[in-house]
Design a binder for these strands. Structure first.
Lengths: 118, 118
DNA sequence: TATACTGTTATATAATTATATAACACTATA
DNA sequence: TATAGTGTTATATAATTATATAACAGTATA
């Protein structure tokens, strides 16, 4: 689920963290209302500096995905809606693509370009 | 096709340029053997500094997508294979997703997470 | 040959991102 | 109350990314 940041991808680490947590919430793997691991645990999980974790969590807070309580922890907000139909469509697409042996990175590139141009 | 870089996306501009050109090649919108616009034209198209364009083109050159000729220009290599089946699958997926009103960014997040976890 | 295009290389500066490190404040609990 | 866990704030430094700018070198053509 939550995994190390890819330090060679070119995408800033704090953004990778934001994206990872956000999508886990949307996929329902991180449940609404539940508590995230502590900042210092996340620092180990993502393999980054504590300030980088904080920067990511601040962004998620500003975007309304999580909230924090001083001295207690970070919690996933309860008013986020998860789109089941959409997830099914994407799962099917990914399955087909993996069978065709295209790699992840190339699929994403084509996906992006098709989306933005058509 | 080739469009301005998104300076607020967090993704380095030179990488956005690399991705854009790479996927246009894979989609067949930039034909094999054809010449790219000049560096100074690309600078205007992408709205970045000339050094940023050069950095992107150097990367594409290293990855074998394009080649350059001093005083003449940049050309798309001829030995790149475009995956037609894959493109069809992705086009269908994008069409469905757009009908369900999910936004691009969220789809990409879910796409990434599904791909990497399943 | 002169000119106007190409790509190439270089330097200096600024902004962004990431790290290391420390200290402070709140909460729960032994 | 003492302690160990939370989040929060701050400072200094380094690496990466992007800009502005200039100069140089190869190619095609009038």
């Amino acid at each position: 689920m939550l995994r190390k940041v890819d330090k060679h991808s070119g995408v800033p680490a704090y953004l990778q963290i934001v994206n990872m947590i956000k999508s886990e919430i949307l996929l329902g793997n991180l449940q609404k209302g539940s508590q995230l691991p502590s900042i210092r645990d996340l620092q180990v999980i993502f393999d980054v500096n504590i300030n980088t974790v904080i920067k990511a969590l601040e962004k998620l807070k500003n975007e309304g995905y999580i909230e924090s309580e001083q001295g207690i922890g970070y919690f996933i907000k309860k008013d986020i809606d998860v789109e089941e139909g959409v997830i099914k469509i994407i799962r099917e697409c990914v399955t087909k693509l993996k069978n065709s042996r295209i790699d992840y990175y190339t699929s994403m590139l084509i996906f992006e370009e098709v989306w933005k141009n058509e």
